[in-house]
């Protein structure tokens, strides 16, 4: 590729970055509120893809309506995961919660692969494209960016404009103190897990309109979310969105200069370097 490709690659990357950022916000929210690294994040993203897929191929539901269904199911599913796998061990050491959420990962992947097999699927949707003179923006990409921004805005509205958001922030800050103030921390934790899961599923729903996928596709995006979350600071939702955009741009731009297969190497090296040099992330942990 040449430097002429720089602008379109950067735009492509930037757009994907918003979608990555949305998923990473879910992961970082859960970590910020309850110090749990959610290893079921990837399969949950894949579930979002399949909710859209099933509604679209089975009942002809528009993928963007399917996306709303995925977001709603995400809340319910996240609350369920919290009570089944996390609630009992919320105060246990990290290894315990890592393994508990990983067990959920195995269960989701197990069921999803036996139902959907690992044949690649796609949601066939086209919204045309706009642009010219070398820069073309696909309609699906533009809509994905708009929805990702709307999702992020909604999360902010919830966190900073509602009572529920206030209690989530209180619990994230100091669970014991929040309980003394009369906040039922279990409910808040469960809801936070629900919101985090919903963000991941929404992001998956968006990705389903862009690429083909299998039940195992979530793993790639899970690792990207980890990189983003560390970039932006563990537990910091703004950081996750910014980190997503940075990673997306990096992916887009770097393909101009290095072979595509080296891009993940670069991502992981950055990931490790940030952990070592500035473990609170570029924007600082927990906003």
């Amino acid at each position: 590729m040449s430097v002429d490709a720089l602008v379109p690659s950067a735009i492509d990357g930037l757009m994907l970055g918003f979608v990555y950022g949305l998923a990473a916000m879910g992961l970082t929210l859960i970590f910020g509120v309850m110090r749990v690294i959610n290893l079921s994040h990837g399969p949950v993203i894949a579930l979002g893809m399949f909710v859209v897929y099933v509604l679209f191929t089975g009942a002809g539901v528009n993928p963007y309506l399917g996306l709303i269904a995925a977001a709603g199911l995400g809340i319910l599913f996240g609350v369920a995961i919290y009570f089944v796998a996390v609630d009992r061990i919320i105060n246990a050491p990290e290894l315990t919660t890592l393994l508990a959420t990983y067990s959920v990962n195995l269960m989701i992947v197990g069921v999803a692969t036996s139902v959907f097999t690992t044949t690649p699927r796609a949601v066939d949707i086209s919204l045309g494209s706009v642009g010219g003179s070398g820069v073309t923006i696909l309609g699906t990409h533009a809509v994905a960016v708009a929805i990702a921004i709307a999702g992020a805005a909604l999360l902010y509205a919830i966190l900073f404009r509602t009572r529920i958001g206030k209690s989530i922030r209180a619990v994230a800050n100091n669970r014991a103190a929040a309980e003394l103030m009369g906040i039922d921390s279990r409910r808040v934790l469960a809801l936070s897990f629900g919101i985090g899961t919903s963000l991941a599923m929404t992001s998956g729903a968006l990705l389903s309109t862009l690429f083909s996928f299998t039940p195992l596709s979530g793993a790639t995006y899970e690792v990207k979310s980890f990189v983003i979350v560390v970039l932006g600071g563990l537990g910091n939702p703004t950081g996750a969105l910014v980190g997503g955009i940075v990673l997306g741009l990096l992916e887009g731009v770097s393909t101009v200069f290095i072979p595509v297969s080296w891009v993940p190497v670069l991502e992981y090296v950055i990931f490790i370097a940030i952990l070592l040099v500035r473990p609170t992330g570029l924007l600082g942990a927990r906003a």
């Binding site: 990983y102 959920v104 195995l106 269960m107 992947v109």
Partner: peptide, 14 residues
Amino acid sequence: QLFLAGLLLLVVVL
């Protein structure tokens, strides 16, 4: 297989 492995792990962890 994977589902049951996950379930077993969860039971042990919890």
